[in-house]
């Protein structure tokens, strides 16, 4: 795919609020990122309010009803990019089939933030500390991006190219996020470690989805997908950890194995919210807690089943 040059001959409007996706994509094609795409504004306006208040030209996506949707299908849910966190957290299918997403949406800022913040914005703002990306990584979400050139769907795990950089082209908009339902028996674990219990940015967060086979004592990891927040420059999957755990009996996985794998997957740093050492150590503990919870659930299933 070639990258279109967004050399507009006219300056972008100060504020453009298209009524259709086609109009939005046309504007994006003409002005690219000179027209800043906004929906819930909960991240971007924080920047406006600081210092000399430099307000960009805005492509306001909030009138596009087609992006504010939740469409459950037989195998997956497709969520429009401008669906709010509150709408996601309150949706019965998401609560039942994707409970980690309901939980992360409910822990995104406060109630007032959740009413405005969108899932697409949380992804496109590309903060390594964003609350929903770990869950999307663990569930194996796919993103659909659109431009006047057409639409494409890509795996979310490859989307973040570097700190605040993504694979989205300048003329593209994120349209929807498709999240497959986990297979039966898959066990989820989500924990956000924030600076406080609510209205917090994470020190570190983990979402994990573990599939096992075999009976209680001898349960073996058949697949495990992870997503971390605040553990590197972008929301991070942990492919080395997934590989390291594959085929391992749950009972045999120890801290050393997890730590070794995560050393390759994560690159935490010291910043204003925590330290690299804390993040590295808690990342291991959270993975062990996820596996422990998986063991408990397998045992429970064996007992009740």
């Amino acid at each position: 795919m070639s990258t279109p040059a967004a050399h507009a001959s006219r300056p972008p409007p100060a504020w453009y609020r298209p009524g259709t996706l086609a109009d939005a994509l046309a504007a994006r094609a003409e002005w690219g990122r000179d027209l800043v795409a906004m929906a819930g504004c909960t991240d971007l306006m924080v920047g406006w309010n600081a210092g000399a208040r430099r307000v960009p030209s805005v492509l306001d996506l909030s009138a596009l009803a087609e992006l504010r949707t939740i469409e459950p299908g037989p195998d997956a849910v497709t969520i429009g990019a401008t669906m709010s966190c509150a709408g996601i957290a309150a949706h019965p299918v998401i609560a039942a089939r994707l409970p980690m997403l309901a939980a992360s949406a409910r822990q995104t800022g406060s109630v007032a933030i959740q009413n405005r913040a969108t899932l697409g914005g949380n992804i496109m703002n590309a903060s390594p500390a964003a609350d929903n990306p770990p869950v999307l990584l663990a569930y194996g979400a796919r993103l659909t991006l659109a431009s006047v050139r057409g639409a494409r769907t890509i795996g979310y795990d490859a989307f973040h190219a570097g700190y605040k950089r993504t694979l989205a082209e300048a003329d593209e908009l994120l349209v929807s996020i498709t999240i497959p339902f986990p297979p039966p028996g898959a066990i989820g674990y989500y924990r956000k470690v924030g600076t406080r219990r609510a209205q917090a940015i994470s020190k570190i967060a983990l979402a994990a989805l573990v599939e096992t086979s075999g009976a209680a004592d001898g349960a073996v990891v058949r697949g495990a997908r992870f997503g971390f927040a605040s553990a590197g420059p972008v929301p991070l999957p942990a492919p080395a950890l997934s590989r390291a755990l594959h085929g391992m009996p749950l009972a045999s996985i120890d801290a050393g194995r997890v730590a070794q794998a995560l050393a390759a997957d994560l690159s935490p740093m010291d910043d204003i919210r925590s330290t690299a050492a804390y993040r590295r150590s808690v990342a291991v503990n959270l993975v062990l807690a996820a596996l422990q919870s998986a063991r408990r659930e397998v045992a429970q299933a064996a007992y009740t089943g």
């Binding site: 906004m38 504004c41 909960t42 306001d60 405005r116």
Partner: peptide, 11 residues
């Protein structure tokens, strides 16, 4: 409920 410091009136 919204925080009015993060709402542009255009929306």
């Amino acid at each position: 409920l919204v925080n009015s410091c993060l709402v542009p009136v255009g929306q």
